[in-house]
Design a binder for these strands. Structure first.
Lengths: 169, 169
DNA sequence: GCTAACGTTGAACATAAGTTCAGCGTCAAG
DNA sequence: CTTGACGCTGAACTTATGTTCAACGTTAGC
């Protein structure tokens, strides 16, 4: 089939399919004499796998490292290893999400719990102090701490090495 | 204080502080006659708030929209609204994380549950079919469905509008 | 033979949140 | 007076995941 049909069958755009080829992720492609790409029905499966893996939190680089050229011949060890690590990543993120959610809920309550006799400015200071309490602790500790406190100070997202970043320098 | 001291006190880099100023996020800055930036101790608080909000999943744009120029004068309604929406975003992501994790665990089990009498190729096909089952359903349904199935087909991350994307076109 | 739909390419653009760099100015100590 | 640390600017670069565009080639139907 040509690229348009593959796009339709896989639900991806043609630009995305060409992009995957360019970065070496989709190698199952041939060329007709006129230069048109041709795909077998395997390509649909591969694209399905790619988007499924993406949904599960794998980057395209990770997927490329795991996807074999022959779909019937996987690297079992690497695969289950990567899957297990991804589960751990997810669990770590779940923990952080729970903490963030709890902090937000506490904050919402705290804002609404302004004592009748307190003016807004004072309330703001009170809430502000509470919000920054944990962070400031971190800071004062960090300032002459040797082991970094695991970098929880970054946006919430499921990135490959989200936990243990080794700054090679 | 000058920028270096603020960087040290806030734990951010000077480039990051200048960047925040450039994008209009940190307005609490004055200039000496020599061109050097000067900050009050409020700036430390503001930077602390910014990184705390970032950790909780707010983008810099969102933070800019919520941060008042006067820390004692917040927009209560906008703030609690944003906080509540962020909690909802987190809950949505928690659900997706749970699903992804469950799928990965199922997949790991499935890979290891290869029947003794089945060769690797056949096992690969079996597992592959299972993995893609849900996705293929989605696809066949989507093809002539009116309401989009809520775009769960994208990487896991906590982005502002992660749930309900309105394509204005 | 024309037109519409499809295909090709390379390059540029988009986003978010910064970092890095070159080239220059300022300031305090020795 | 020199040196080193600190500061300034604007521009370019980074990462990941694509999209968009212009300019051109191919093919099928009429």
């Amino acid at each position: 089939m040509r690229i348009g049909e593959l796009a339709q069958k896989s639900g991806l755009t043609t630009s995305r399919i060409r992009f995957y080829e360019r970065i070496g992720l989709l190698k199952a492609v041939d060329r007709r004499l006129n230069g048109y790409r041709t795909y077998s029905s395997q390509a649909v499966t591969i694209l399905g796998l790619i988007t499924t893996a993406q949904r599960a939190g794998f980057t395209l680089d990770e997927i490329r490292a795991l996807l074999p050229s022959d779909l019937t011949h996987w690297d079992h060890a690497a695969l289950t290893g990567a899957l297990t690590r991804k589960v751990a990543d997810i669990e770590a993120l779940q923990v952080r999400l729970g903490q963030s959610k709890a902090q937000l809920l506490r904050l919402i309550e705290d804002i609404q719990a302004r004592p009748e006799d307190m003016d807004c400015a004072a309330n703001a200071r009170r809430v502000l102090t509470n919000v920054l309490a944990k962070h400031t602790e971190d800071l004062t500790v960090t300032s002459d701490d040797v082991r970094l406190p695991d970098r929880t100070d970054r946006p919430l997202s499921l990135k490959p090495g989200a936990g243990r970043k080794v700054v090679s320098r």
